Amino acid sequence: MTPVPLVPVELAAMADADGLVRVADLRRYGVTAREIARWSASGVLKPLVRGWYSLAQDDDRSAWERRRHDHAQRTRALVLQLDGAAVASHHSALVMHGLPTYAADLRQVHLMRTQDDHSRRRPGLTLHRCVDGAGHDATSVEPAVAVVQAGLLGSAVSSLVAADAAVHRGLVTTDALDEALDLLRGPGSAGVRRILGHVDGKAESPGETRTRLALTLMGLTLESQYAVTDGDFLAVSDLRVAGTRLLVEFDGFVKYSRADPYRLERCPSDVLVTEKVREDRLRELGWVVLRIIWSELDDVAVLRRRVERALALADATAQTLVTLGTPSPVSGL
């Protein structure tokens, strides 16, 4: 990780709680343009939008997490710059609420005006017209509105990914989503409404949401967070194909290695070993486990073939268990 330059005390004192620094405050304090340029060149200050910088931060976030953080900082700066005339909307509001985005261009900040109906766009910023009745606080539209807006802006799937997470975390209800859909009725809203009919607050990741949607569109009936127990053994699978012995897991394909061999805390390789032991036990109990990765979600033909083979294997396994007279394990929560 690249070392972060030390932040001068006076800069830290003038930054707000989110680490934003306004140039006007620096100049009022007597900081010269040359000093600001030097701090920016050294990495102490990071330019966001005209008139605003953020302090350098030392963290171990992933590249994707840093992009989300940078987007949130630019969004905050633009909201402050417009001084109450606009709030974060669409995927920018999702980021502000800590909700996942899908297929979103984080180079572009989206804001909604709070009073007038004029919209405009320039590189880095889209200002949308005010939507009467859309709830918001000082910085962002409410989560349900942001969920629907995100789907109207790009892929409807982005609405479902965000909605699953928002319902899971208790930030929205299905009733709130219905109200937001009514509020934002217009071109594209029928598609967003249709896909939001598949909301499932049990989903625990965007990949799980996309997997469930893909299999549902293939005509399968699914049960989320399906639990299999056997004595003191408990395994909760992302999905079960109803009426079968097929369990489906989404695999985010994390790096299964230990970056520092001398660190003792749990790392991805430990997770891999645990998952293998868990799946071995499930197979011993007569379950078929199908793992799906990101790339397969974008290749429906490949995914369908794998699912069909897994279903055939699950059916054969069930027939074998019936022949052997093996009782089914207690399952389902």
Rank of each mutant, 00 (worst) to 15 (best):
A166H: 04
L246Y: 04
M96W: 06
Q81T: 13
E35C: 09
K255P: 07
V199C: 00
L20H: 03
L48I: 06
W294S: 12
L184H: 00
L246V: 05
G84L: 11
T326K: 10
P8D: 02
L264C: 09
R28D: 09
L234H: 15
A24L: 05
W294T: 10
V131Y: 02
R113K: 14
I292C: 09
Y226E: 10
M218N: 04
P100G: 08
G252S: 15
L220S: 07
T320C: 02
E284L: 15
S328H: 08
V289M: 04
A165M: 12
D238L: 09
V147Q: 02
L80Y: 14
L127E: 11
Q57S: 12
W287C: 02
E208P: 04
T320L: 11
A37C: 06
R212G: 12
V21W: 06
R210L: 15
M112L: 05
E284C: 11
M96P: 00
G252W: 10
L78S: 15
E208M: 07
T216V: 04
S224A: 15
D270P: 12
V4R: 06
R28C: 04
D58F: 02
K255Q: 08
D18H: 12
F250D: 09
L184G: 06
S224L: 08
G135D: 12
L127Y: 04
S140Y: 00
P3E: 08
T320M: 04
L106Y: 06
P143C: 06
L246S: 05
D164E: 07
C130E: 05
L333I: 08
A41D: 11
E142G: 12
I36E: 15
L272Y: 14
S40I: 00
R22H: 13
G252V: 09
H128P: 03
Q225M: 03
V172G: 02
G151R: 07
R210T: 04
D238I: 10
A163Q: 02
D117M: 11
E265G: 07
L321P: 00
L290F: 12
A214P: 01
R281W: 05
A312T: 12
A77Y: 11
A134D: 10
A77S: 12
R74P: 13
D251A: 11
M14G: 02
L11V: 09
A235M: 11
H168Y: 06
L125H: 08
D117N: 13
V302A: 14
A165E: 14
K255Y: 10
T209W: 04
A72L: 14
R68T: 06
R245Q: 10
E35A: 14
G151D: 09
H136D: 02
R68K: 14
L48Y: 06
A176Y: 01
S140Q: 03
G231N: 09
S158D: 06
E275Q: 15
R22T: 00
W64Q: 15
L297E: 05
S54A: 15
L184M: 07
E296T: 03
R263P: 01
V49D: 05
A214H: 01
M112P: 00
P187W: 00
Q115T: 15
K276Q: 14
A162M: 07
L324K: 05
C130T: 13
A77W: 08
V109Q: 06
V192I: 09
